[in-house]
């Protein structure tokens, strides 16, 4: 239970002091903060390396900055967020953003293609008391970010690895390959090749362990685009094998739809809509 995820039994060089970590939430579902709590539950030895000096979801403790590491969950979606994220950056030596919301605007970035006034009016009877920006965007669009950990939610083991890496001064072990590579390594039968299901595995960052294909379904890109992708070629392949463009567009314009590679492809598909979805 107390062994750290990289096999470190805590016997390595004892840090002079624990990293002072602060956690902030912006627009999000809290799922990535929950993964952080689960990481501590799985590897209590983490608390020998780091201490949470501000983590409002889990603790009433609030210590003033500066902090060694700031962890941010959630996207920037209100005028206040824009101001707050600059203050957070100013307080943190190292800024780690976690999850689809913080790294690409999240599912709530689907508003970015509409008029925010319409979105407010659709949900609220008195829109004037609601303050929302026209867009929901990732943290790096506003302030410099030192490390982005992807996923909706982030993977608990990857998150623990990044924290241990920061505490011990090594590089985080986060792969830059695609879900497709993880899928092959796991020996999962390809849903795209064998069943003609359009799958984003070839263009999606690894880290989930090819969870969706292992459940017999398509990857829907919740870890965002992989480092090197060719989305137009993938779309062309799926279209040539019978998937209508109207089916591809919502797949690409999904949980990480505002990530640059997915966004560009969604806009290309939307400009030439082709036949509608069945």
């Amino acid at each position: 239970m107390s062994t750290l995820p990289d096999g470190d039994h805590g016997a390595g060089p004892v840090p002079a002091r624990r990293l002072r970590v602060a956690v902030w939430k912006f627009a999000s579902c809290d799922g990535c903060q929950l993964q952080l709590l689960d990481a501590v539950g799985r590897w209590p030895a983490l608390l020998g390396r780091i201490e949470f000096v501000q983590f409002l979801e889990a603790s009433s403790r609030v210590e003033p900055g500066p902090y060694d590491v700031g962890i941010v969950e959630g996207s920037v979606s209100t005028p206040q967020d824009v101001v707050r994220i600059r203050e957070v950056r100013r307080q943190c030596r190292f800024l780690l953003t976690i999850g689809a919301c913080a790294t690409s605007g999240g599912i709530q970035a689907l508003r970015n293609w509409g008029r925010v006034e319409d979105f407010v009016a659709a949900v609220y009877a008195s829109p004037d008391t609601i303050e929302a920006l026209a867009t929901s965007t990732g943290i790096a669009e506003h302030v410099p970010v030192d490390f982005e950990l992807r996923g909706c939610p982030v993977d608990t083991a990857q998150l623990a690895d990044v924290l241990v890496a920061l505490a011990t001064g090594r590089t985080p072990r986060v792969p830059s390959t695609s879900v497709c590579a993880e899928c092959k390594a796991a020996g999962v039968v390809c849903v795209a090749v064998t069943r003609g299901i359009p799958c984003l595995g070839p263009v999606t960052q690894a880290g989930c362990g090819a969870l969706c294909p292992a459940h017999g379904r398509e990857c829907f890109g919740c870890f965002g685009p992989a480092e090197a992708t060719n989305l137009p070629a993938l779309s062309a392949h799926y279209e040539a094998t019978g998937t209508p463009r109207g089916r591809l567009l919502p797949l690409v314009r999904g949980i990480c739809g505002w990530a640059p590679a997915f966004r560009a492809e969604a806009e290309r598909l939307a400009d030439a809509p082709g036949e509608p979805a069945p």
Binding site: C29, C32, Q35, Q108, V120, A132, G254
Partner: peptide
């Protein structure tokens, strides 16, 4: 911050709804 789920679900394929509404709460 408001996230407007009820609005951005409009126009999406119904089969996607379980994956999308999950993101209301982790």
């Amino acid at each position: 911050p408001p996230r407007f789920f009820e609005k951005f679900l409009v126009g999406r394929p119904l089969a996607e709804v379980p994956d999308l509404v999950a993101r209301i709460c982790g």
